[in-house]
């Protein structure tokens, strides 16, 4: 770089180079080059994980909990009273029991209903391979499959969300 600059300098006379606008210009160029170099060094310093290869091996998600609270069979009522010893507590226990029963029923219902993710998977199977690229998406939606385009766009938005979760290398 310095040799390049020296060549440049030789072409012009010293008087011209002393002029303010010439100096300013040169300083600016120098600054820009420095900035570029700095950015390049920074981006090289970042290391990137090959995220896809790891996550795809284990598809089922496993969550762990440290408490027994969600693993108690048949409910969880901490305070109880028998034979009207403490009426307030007896009423409270009844309420809590009702609440927990409703919760359990809801949980079972949820298990039977179809989740969003499952719906997407179903569509994937029926319609075929989904485009992963944004450019591809446009080309596809402009194609003759007008009926399917709506569904597909929905799917695409899901896909693009997934992509955004990955680690993006800063530029």
């Amino acid at each position: 770089m310095s040799s390049h600059r020296q060549l440049h300098v030789k072409e012009l006379s010293g008087n011209i180079l002393k002029m303010k606008f010439m100096q300013r210009n040169r300083e600016q160029q120098q600054k820009e080059e420095e900035e570029k170099e700095q950015k390049r060094a920074l981006s090289e310093a970042h290391w990137v994980l090959d995220f896809n290869s790891i996550s795809q091996e284990n598809e089922t998600k496993i969550e762990s909990e440290s408490s027994f609270m969600n693993f108690l069979e048949g409910g969880n009522i901490g305070r109880r009273s028998y034979q009207k010893f403490n009426n307030a507590i007896e009423k409270l226990a009844e309420e809590q029991m009702k609440e927990q029963k409703v919760k359990k029923i809801e949980e079972n219902e949820q298990k039977d209903s179809v989740s969003d993710k499952e719906m997407v998977d179903r569509y994937k199977k029926d319609i075929g391979i989904l485009p992963t690229n944004k450019n591809e998406k446009h080309s596809l939606s402009t194609e003759d499959k007008v009926e399917n385009s709506n569904k597909k766009q929905k799917l695409n938005s899901k896909k693009s969300k997934d992509i955004s979760k990955e680690f993006i290398k800063p530029e």
Partner: peptide, 9 residues
């Protein structure tokens, strides 16, 4: 695939 498996204590 549908659900998350929860493991406890």
């Amino acid at each position: 695939d549908k659900d998350v498996i929860k493991i406890g204590p």
